[in-house]
């Protein structure tokens, strides 16, 4: 699974420009599903049909987002430096000295305007990207071009560190679960690799409008409270996948939370319960699409979210795969 994760996290795919991720995922899942479509926004929607044993099978939607945070060029200076804006939650204190890559392969280094006082952090608009250009005319990119951060995957002990673990790790879990599922299942399963989550869970919204699921489960990362002077949160790396109870955009369906706990206990998968203050996932649009669905989220604890070094624990990842498979291969009485 590490090689799959490596190819996913090292690929380029900021919100709105997820094509390379779609191209990676499609061949991985094609043998394990009945059909695949790409919708108008770019969501990759895979359908694994129900066995037909149940005349009214539950429609289950799984969502993991393909997009990552990034930047977009807003202006090119006379000297060829690029000013930029954020795509999703990009924070100024993670910028200086970072490297980014554009779709055409151009690599840029992020610098910032003169710092007179080390206590200040310049806002994004006082940073710039240096692509080695000397004027507006020889800049290899243009206003409106998007870039993503560059960082290799590091595997060290149980830890996996990379940019865009948020949420390529969710994509990897969904892919791995599809591979492990029996060829026939009772539920009508839709696995959605969604777009534009980081800019407002937009892709999952249109995908859910199409599927109108009975049950919606997002796979996404969540914060931890296990680093020095962290904001208190009862989730830690290595403690198992986190079953989301609530975040700032959604209260998970109580019956689904209960079922997730039950399946984890039956399969002896360590798990944690998650209450996230701030942030939400694709579970929110799934919950309120059409007539609504029973929605929840299996979260992967992750340190340093929205930095180029997002850290997860492979035991939590394995637990999430097992929990998802256990949910999908057993009756969903909620």
């Amino acid at each position: 699974m590490n090689e799959l994760i490596r190819s996913l996290v090292e690929a380029y795919g900021p919100s709105g420009f997820e094509q390379p991720i779609r191209d990676l995922i499609w061949p991985e899942i094609e043998p394990f599903v009945d059909d695949i479509i790409v919708d108008a926004l770019g969501n990759l929607i895979a359908h694994k049909k129900s066995s037909g044993a149940d005349s009214h099978p539950l429609k289950v939607m799984i969502a993991a987002h393909m997009d990552e945070i990034g930047v977009m060029v807003t202006h090119i200076t006379d000297k060829g430096y690029l000013r930029f804006t954020n795509i999703g939650g990009v924070f100024p204190h993670t910028m200086l000295g970072n490297r980014i890559r554009f779709a055409n392969g151009t690599v840029g280094v992020i610098g910032c305007d003169r710092v007179d006082d080390l206590k200040t952090i310049h806002p994004l608009n006082k940073h710039f990207i240096d692509v080695g250009a000397t004027s507006r005319d020889d800049a290899p990119v243009k206003v409106g071009d998007a870039a993503a951060f560059i960082r290799d995957l590091t595997v060290q002990g149980n830890h996996l560190v990379a940019k865009s673990m948020d949420d390529r790790i969710g994509c990897a879990i969904a892919i791995e679960a599809l591979k492990r599922l029996p060829s026939v299942i009772d539920n009508d399963l839709f696995v959605v690799f969604s777009v534009q989550e980081e800019v407002g869970t937009r892709g999952a919204e249109t995908a859910a409008n199409r599927i109108l699921p009975d049950v919606g489960i997002a796979l996404d990362v969540t914060r931890t409270g296990d680093v020095p002077e962290a904001r208190a949160m009862d989730v830690q790396l290595g403690g198992g996948p986190a079953i989301k109870v609530k975040d700032s955009g959604m209260i998970a369906h109580a019956g689904l939370v209960r079922l997730m706990r039950q399946r984890a206990e039956e399969a002896a998968i360590p798990f944690q319960l998650e209450v996230l203050e701030g942030g939400t996932t694709d579970a929110r649009p799934m919950q309120i699409a059409g007539p609504g669905s029973a929605a929840g989220c299996i979260s992967i604890p992750c340190r340093y979210i929205h930095t180029p070094s997002e850290m997860v624990d492979r035991r939590d990842v394995e637990g999430a795969v097992q929990l998802l498979v256990a949910l999908l291969t057993n009756p969903m009485d909620i």
Binding site: D39, L41, T74, T85, R202, E205, T206, N209, R210
Partner: peptide, 17 residues
Amino acid sequence: PGGGGTNTAAIQRAHTG
């Protein structure tokens, strides 16, 4: 790119996109 918004935001997300 950046701020502002137009009806595209509402239209793009209607129905299945």
